[in-house]
Write a protein that binds this DNA or RNA. Structure first.
Lengths: 232, 232
DNA sequence: CGCTCTATTGATAAACCTCAAATACAGTGG
DNA sequence: CCACTGTATTTGAGGTTTATCAATAGAGCG
């Protein structure tokens, strides 16, 4: 409560806080610790003991699964208002995920015991955490199915639409993905190579569906992309 | 409790019942309804409202994600003592998964409200359910990474090892997958075609790693398979 | 303005799918 | 017990998708 002034008002809408009053939100936030990470800094790494869970206040995190030989599967971006490492609260096993900031990021973090305590006081928290875990499960299952059954271009279309929905911002020309997103990032997200993503985006740019530059993508015609994603 | 005689003793080891005494287990089972499904019968289908959660007593269920054009991703097999549709208890949304029996299967099922009630009386149940959801999330994330980064034969090796661990039975020649498992099933599990699986198994059979017949696989040399899966 | 990182594009190769045909196998009913 | 029938499996040939490699161009930063 004491340092609630530090937190932007907008986080009253965070998934974490569904069904929790503003005052209680402030209390819960005050139980955590505020921490700012540099651009590109690692919050936690695959194989670490899961210790904290994080609420993102500003900027974004990139969650990845790492494989040998430097290959990487990009799981998702964690946007302001979203939490990650929710699972860390429920078990002590290693967490198989790596989190890196995309630009300098502000977070609030809670250790396991503190969060368990908070959940005890505010039971709605447990429900919200569970909801997050289930949402993640749904998301990864859909993507697993798509990865297994669809072609590369179709998957890139879906990826772009997903990221657009989660992190898009309206601008004049269309919907801008609001952070540095490279061809490599998109290929790690979809299980292809940066070359194929580049070719795909070039072809869509010719058709007027997107506009793109260095680590920057604007979706001009979401409808066309949706239709492409659904028909293959 | 009244009908606890119906249930085999072995289910005292079910994940669902971790930390729950035998008597309480019987009570919980008695709150559910016992139901036998025919071979190949569908328990629930993608898009259904999630209504029940199921404990498998005998035989196995096959959980799949369905895609248009008849393509299918095989999520996992649910063995005796395991539960499925755990998520159904926590939300009413459509469940994106299809469950079909592999041979005639005995189950116990609970509707949402009954299970919520049981959880209220036996809090350990909630923890066990959560554990199941988290395990499923871990599993699908690992497989997502593998699908995205590894070659077909490597994935088939991993699939065989996974299924072996979960459903294998020691026999003279090695470890037998203890139910009908076709080339098509394995290819749906790994995201390839039955032809490629067939070729792969043939080549392994020549090397003495497996023995296989119609819908039947014995892993003769698990070590060789592990090493193959890990080095690619 | 030079340096570095990202993106583009073409040529080639590898992995894997698709299609087709033959073969093996497990039940089933006579 | 055996022939029959419907699946499952095997295997080959050929095609498609996509990765890989290489070289060039472009963008941002100090």
């Amino acid at each position: 409560m004491s340092n609630s002034l530090f937190y932007p008002v907008t986080f009253h809408q965070a998934v974490l806080f569904t069904g929790i009053t503003g005052k209680d939100q402030a209390d819960i936030l005050a139980m955590g610790r505020r921490r700012v990470f540099n651009s590109g800094e690692t919050l936690f790494h695959q194989g670490d003991r899961a210790i904290f869970c994080y609420l993102v206040l500003k900027n974004r995190l990139k969650l990845s699964l790492l494989h040998e030989e430097g290959k990487e599967a990009l799981l998702r971006y964690i946007n302001p208002g979203e939490i990650t490492a929710a699972v860390a609260v429920f078990r002590e096993k290693n967490y198989p995920v790596t989190a890196v900031t995309v630009g300098p990021a502000e977070t609030v973090l809670w250790d396991r015991n503190t969060m368990l305590q908070a959940m005890h006081v505010y039971p709605a928290l447990s429900i919200n955490f569970l909801q997050v875990v289930i949402d993640r499960l749904d998301d990864i299952q859909s993507r697993y199915l798509e990865l297994q059954t669809e072609r590369v271009e179709q998957r890139v279309a879906r990826a772009l639409l997903r990221i657009m929905k989660q992190s898009g911002r309206r601008v004049d020309e269309g919907i801008l993905i609001d952070f540095r997103l490279s061809r490599k990032d998109l290929s790690d997200y979809t299980g292809t190579t940066l070359y194929t993503v580049s070719r795909t985006l070039s072809s869509w740019e010719k058709r007027g569906w997107v506009r793109s530059g260095r680590e920057r993508i604007i979706v001009v015609d979401p409808h066309a992309l949706v239709s492409f994603a659904e028909t293959g």
